[in-house]
Design a protein around this nucleic acid. Sequence first.
DNA 1: CACTTGACCTGTCCGC
DNA 2: TGCGGACAGGTCAAGT
Length: 288
Amino acid sequence: MPELPEVETVRRGLETLIIGRVIRSVGVLNSPKSFPNAQADVDAFMIDAEIVAVRRRAKVLLIDLSTHYTIVIHLKMTGQLVYRGDQVFGAGHPNESLIGELPDRSTRVMIEFMDNSWLYFNDQRKFGWVKLIPTIEVPNIDFMKKVGPEPLELDFTSAQFRQRFERRARTNIKAALLDQSVVAGVGNIYADESLWGAKISPKRKVADVTTEEFEDLYRELRYVMNLAIEKGGSTDKNYVDVEGKRGSYMDFARVFRRENLACPRCGATIVKIKWAGRGTHICTNCQK
DNA sequence: CACTTGACCTGTCCGC
DNA sequence: TGCGGACAGGTCAAGT
């Protein structure tokens, strides 16, 4: 589920809530594959370690420890990271948590801190994972070696964006946008949203997209992702932030999950098709 | 190499 | 209600 804006929202929440805390215990429930490290590594490099930084690269979270080890986390489709301190707000409260008592049946990993607060990794579909590796090894993970540039970095230019697609000239623009080695962090929601913003059909061959259209797509992708971060991400089904709260970008979406509704730009009916192996939302009137 | 498809899992929703 | 099938925000490992 979570794409760059959702993972960034989680990162910011973790940064305010767990930096400086010290780990007392680590528990793995229901799914050893969610956290494959040996118990000896956990004992040696997690227990008594202090959280010193929370970073993000593409859709991957990096929690740096004082032991010079890093907890690497990928939420994939249904992963959640929920922090629990003293207070949990119920229905009706502005900080209401959508997540009930923890651990629950989708909890895979629990981290307990010395102050009796907890961080829970929940993952219904078990695609996500948590790994503990030396901090210095993070850049050497296969994923890190091949992943493309961060699209929201201030020095990332429109020209660089266009050049990243040259290798994928023969495929369609949506498949290329979803390719993490082209640009980091784009998933199905923001691919559809940015293509709509740039008035480009997801079916277009990359080679046929003009320089001007790449400039539009670059601008629209940065616009929708920055807006989504401002709105705390998109909650379609599972996604919540570290306090268990939903994100509100879906209230602002123009095409995603808006099939059979009117295009906000031209009024034509938005359609949903299967494209690039994914559900794809298009206004066929304005996207050419 | 570039490209496409299926697999990994569980849960939910929709049509019969 | 029950049942089968399609589908869900992401990546990999296989095919061609």
